[in-house]
């Protein structure tokens, strides 16, 4: 039962007597963030959902074996479930959740406590369930990249409310507010004013620097520019080719370089703050260091322009 508001499942209000709620619960299943197994064998664990639904032990176990095979744990059927590793337990939990062929599968950060290899196995399996069994999956995650990999549609929840829903492109490239933009990894958020607009190709002044970007916003309109760090190409001033597809060439000074796995986040300032994400290799090859003058190349199409409204600048 929801603690607040109403929850409608397939037209039925879930705030109903227990028999109705049980019937609804039995059409869905859930995997929790923390791997949970019951203290019995792996096979019995997977068979629980079917047994609760009154299926015979034999039928339940046969079906459970099939699901264990799907998650790659067929050799573990007789093992005590509590002796498994976290990743294995989570795979058992997934097998246990799909053995009943639910219409909706709820996954609450299913890989949050797992190592990268286990996470990958789980992710592959989630995709498999979605594609092969046509199960609707609702997955919550803090890992934006995971959301990008797995989801057809994303809803961003900030401060307890759904801030934006949409496709991956809409969420990651056209966020509807500064808060969402920061959340989905837009590192550069600039505020400027449209100076001119030539059939959708606008000139936008950010301080004294002019950017070219695509927007229908008319001259005089205040706008925000969202630039994803991987869209920014860094070069040395003397190496900028005379003809380039990047319409914006902004010269600036490197102020900080932060390693992020195989990438380096390069923060440029003066005159405008821009963040770029480049590979370690190219950083070494180009010899970038803090204090150096560089040119940030950004295509006009890589800048998302959001006209400022009351809600867009807030969180």
């Amino acid at each position: 039962m929801p603690s607040e508001g109403r929850l409608i499942f397939d037209g039925t209000d879930t705030n109903a007597p227990e028999p109705v709620r049980l019937a609804i619960r039995r059409r869905m299943s859930m995997v929790f963030q923390k791997p949970v197994v019951l203290n019995t064998t792996v096979l019995e664990n997977v068979a629980f959902g079917l047994k609760f639904r009154g299926k015979s032990g034999q039928e339940s176990r046969a079906k459970a074996r099939e699901c264990l095979e799907l998650v790659g744990l067929s050799g573990f059927a007789g093992r005590k479930a509590i002796t498994l590793s976290g990743g294995e337990m989570q795979r058992v939990a997934l097998a246990r959740a799909i053995v009943t062929e639910p219409e909706v599968l709820l996954l609450d950060e299913p890989t949050a406590n797992l190592d990268p290899v286990s996470s990958e196995v789980i992710e592959d399996f989630i995709v498999h369930i979605n594609r092969k069994m046509h199960t609707t999956i609702i997955l919550s995650t803090h890992d934006m990249v995971q959301g990008q990999r797995l989801a057809d549609r994303i809803g961003v929840i900030i401060g307890g409310t759904i801030a934006q829903t949409g496709t991956i492109t809409e969420i990651f490239y056209q966020p509807k507010s500064h808060g969402i933009a920061r959340f989905v990894g837009v590192d550069t958020i600039l505020q400027g004013v449209v100076r001119g607009n030539d059939q959708g190709l606008a000139k936008i002044a950010v301080g004294d620097t002019l950017f070219e970007a695509l927007t229908s916003a008319l001259p005089g309109r205040k706008v925000s520019l969202f630039i994803r760090p991987e869209e920014v190409v860094l070069t040395k001033p003397e190496m900028v080719p005379p003809i380039t597809s990047a319409r914006n060439q902004i010269t600036g000074t490197i102020t900080k370089m932060l390693p992020v796995g195989p990438f380096i986040r390069v923060i440029i300032d003066n005159p405008v703050p821009i963040t770029a994400l480049i590979t370690r290799r190219s950083c070494t090859e180009m010899g970038f260091v803090a204090g150096m003058q560089v040119v940030a190349g950004i295509k006009a199409t890589a800048i998302y322009v959001l006209p400022d409204t009351a809600g867009s600048i807030g969180p």
Binding site: L22, R25, R26, S29, M30, F32, K34, V36, L38, F48, G49, F52, R53, A93, R96, A97, T100, L106
Partner: peptide, 10 residues
């Protein structure tokens, strides 16, 4: 977590 799991399993 065990109780929640049992409820989720129907």
């Amino acid at each position: 977590d065990i109780r929640d799991t049992l409820v989720s399993l129907g």
